[in-house]
């Protein structure tokens, strides 16, 4: 059931962000728990965006403290809430700072106080009061079949809600793989006509940013928003709407197991001696080669870890249609290298 991923051209300058990220992760790890310095965090974000900390750290700090809080509407379509949960794992600013001090999240079903009509009124109010000034975050895919009956909120089809909310948005940010290209509901076997936000809003002329990943890494969302708040423009995007700072480099290049890859030291079964020594997971199906992502440097949960560090192969969840290439990640007899070629992904060389 392999469907081809879109092949991306390699660009050394782009992968720079990945390499720089190493020191950033260290910075974050060092920051650790306890009291966090806001300025330090601004420097961290500057680093993620591949900007020199001087003078940009201070500039980011300025932008964040003087800007009125950015109104955000967060819509959920066909989703699992993984991205809004991921949002709550934000390292810095902390979740309470994001919610109270940095953003104004006027609509998000998982957390907002009111239900029903009072909730809908919050969305309508923000659209009216902050026209062209609110960011629309979309989590989940958009079911286009059956006249929208596969996802309704407040008696309205999600398709209608999304179109209306997008019309006056400053920009639309699709978080997670489902919002990216339809994700899981669009995988083979799906019947709901699920598509991603870019496809759904094609031709609307909107800035549409996508942050694939299952779920996205919250640091990429904060960095994207901070970039806008600081420079009044969105970060550079690739042809699928993914910010270059986060998706411009290949995971495999910045992986901590890469020296083992280069030396030909591979894990061959779960828990074997190589696994215990942190060898390369390629032969256990790792999709790192060909996966555009900064997981290895930014990591997850306050920089604590990422799947490959914990011992599991990368599933390639930032790639288009990764669900239909998942079986590559569970090889048995075939060489995984061959599988990468079969799946049309030439990224093995990257």
């Amino acid at each position: 059931m392999a469907r081809n991923g879109t092949t991306r051209t390699h660009d050394t300058a782009r992968s720079q962000a990945c390499t720089d990220g190493r020191s950033i992760a260290a910075l974050l790890a060092q920051d650790g728990i306890g009291r966090r310095s806001f300025l330090r965090w601004c420097g961290y974000i500057a680093g993620m965006l591949a900007l020199p900390v001087e003078p940009f750290g201070a500039r980011i700090a300025d932008a964040l403290t003087t800007t009125p809080r950015l109104p955000v509407l967060w819509l959920n379509g066909q989703d699992c809430n993984g991205n809004i949960e991921g949002f709550l794992r934000a390292a810095n600013p902390t979740p309470s700072e994001l919610v109270l001090d940095r953003l104004s999240i006027d609509y998000v079903e998982l957390l907002m106080a009111p239900s029903g009509k009072a909730a809908e009124a919050r969305m309508a109010d923000t659209i009216a009061r902050y026209s062209r000034r609110y960011v629309l975050v979309v989590e989940g895919s958009v079911p286009t079949a059956a006249n929208g009956a596969f996802c309704c909120v407040g008696g309205k089809a999600f398709t209608q809600i999304l179109r209306e909310a997008a019309a006056d948005a400053l920009a639309v940010v699709g978080v997670g793989s489902c919002a990216f290209d339809g994700g899981l509901p669009a995988a083979e076997g799906g019947v709901t006509g699920a598509i991603g936000v870019r496809e759904f809003l094609a031709g609307s002329g909107k800035t549409i940013i996508t942050l694939p990943g299952c779920p996205m890494n919250v640091d990429n969302l904060t960095a994207t928003i901070v970039h806008y708040l600081t420079f009044a423009k969105w970060p550079e995007l690739d042809d699928l709407g993914r910010p270059e700072f986060a998706y411009g480099g290949c995971l495999h290049r910045s992986c901590e197991r890469r020296q083992h890859y280069q030396a030909g030291r591979f894990v061959l079964s779960w828990g074997d001696a190589g696994h215990q020594q942190g060898w390369c997971l390629l032969k256990m199906g790792c999709q790192g080669p060909g996966t555009p992502a900064n997981c290895a440097t930014v990591r997850f949960n306050s920089g604590t870890s990422w799947p490959v560090a914990a011992g599991a192969p990368c599933l390639g969840c930032t790639r288009p249609r990764f669900w239909d290439n998942l079986s590559n990640a569970f090889p048995t007899t075939a060489s995984p290298l061959a599988l990468h070629v079969v799946s049309g992904d030439t990224g093995g060389a990257r």
């Binding site: 993984g82 949960e85 991921g86 794992r89 299952c214 779920p215 901590e256 779960w270 828990g271 696994h275 215990q276 020594q277 942190g278 256990m284 990591r299 997850f300 949960n301 306050s302 604590t304 870890s305 990422w306 799947p307 490959v308 560090a309 914990a310 011992g311 599991a312 192969p313 599933l315």
Partner: peptide
Amino acid sequence: AILGGKNPHPQTYAVGGMALTLAPDAPSG
């Protein structure tokens, strides 16, 4: 994150056990 690589959606499951390592002196896991 330590046991599963990330949350949400930790990733170290395997049919037959867990795709992580237990080794007191190892550099990772």
